[in-house]
Design a binder for these strands. Structure first.
Lengths: 146, 146
DNA sequence: CATATTTAAGACTATTTTATCTTTATATAT
DNA sequence: ATATATAAAGATAAAATAGTCTTAAATATG
């Protein structure tokens, strides 16, 4: 039951790495460090992070001591915003059976089940901020690597 | 938020088609009919249905008037069995961040959220039979096609 | 037996996802 | 200025998924 692409996994893990180390804007953190620490292909990670930069989640800075940093306070960035940038705005408009235009008015046979699930995931993502995750990671000493 | 492969979608929809038309074992229903009715590639569907035949969900019969039919009563086949055959036994043993060996003892930062979601999906699949779905489809006149 | 129908199996192609490699642009430090 | 460090961009390759096509095997019917 895979819901996120590898690219999104990497992007999310990278954000969680950043937010579990430092707050916003203090210093730039390099993609080299992140890819090494999280054991993610550097170039592949780079692309994903560019999406987040374009999506106003991150700011980037080139040159020595450059890198990326959160553009806004971690308290204001909810997981849903990140996921929508990485997976697309229509992330929650899916049918479990893959039928086009499946919705409350024109539901597929499992629509009622799937709507509830999607609703829960959406709610979780809407109410969880990067700051909350960073705090949780540090308090519980949670891992970001295999 | 896609959780099932196209192959699984097709397999599920085909089963729902069968079970919404006839009970078990009455007559064989041909893959040609299903692929046509559901607008699914015949050969691609065939492969998926073979998995279900090997998985003891279906029986098949070759030759004129041949086709496939449920091997057991639709009341006894739960969605979870179908999904595990199509997607693999480890369907519910996934980490949302893609980390190996993520579990209650060694959780990733979103494990608590994801566990709940997976639990709900699993429960839904465990408690929904093909018979229930067939009944629902007929009573509510639900669609299986785009 | 011959033919038509139907599933089974496997080879092949196309598309998407994932990953790597190379080059370019930009900033810093010396 | 020059060298170095870094993100950005793009080209290429590899792998997984999706889909098509061909052939074989089984079975019913006349």
């Amino acid at each position: 039951m895979k819901v996120l692409s590898n690219a999104s996994n990497y992007g999310l893990r990278a954000l969680l790495y950043i937010v579990s180390r430092r707050g916003r804007g203090e210093t730039y953190i390099s993609l080299g460090e992140i890819s090494e620490e999280l054991d993610i292909s550097f170039h592949f990670l780079t692309k994903t992070m560019q999406l987040l930069t374009q999506g106003e989640i991150l700011v980037s800075y080139r040159g020595p001591n450059g890198g990326i940093a959160l553009k806004r306070p971690a308290e204001e960035i909810m997981l849903i915003e990140v996921v929508k940038i990485l997976e697309g705005e229509d992330f929650f408009d899916t049918c479990m059976l893959g039928l086009e235009g499946c919705d409350d008015c024109n539901p597929c046979p499992v629509h009622h089940l799937w709507r509830e699930i999607k609703g829960k995931v959406k709610h979780d993502f809407e109410t969880t901020s990067l700051a909350m995750m960073g705090k949780r990671i540090n308090e519980k000493n949670l891992r970001l690597i295999p």
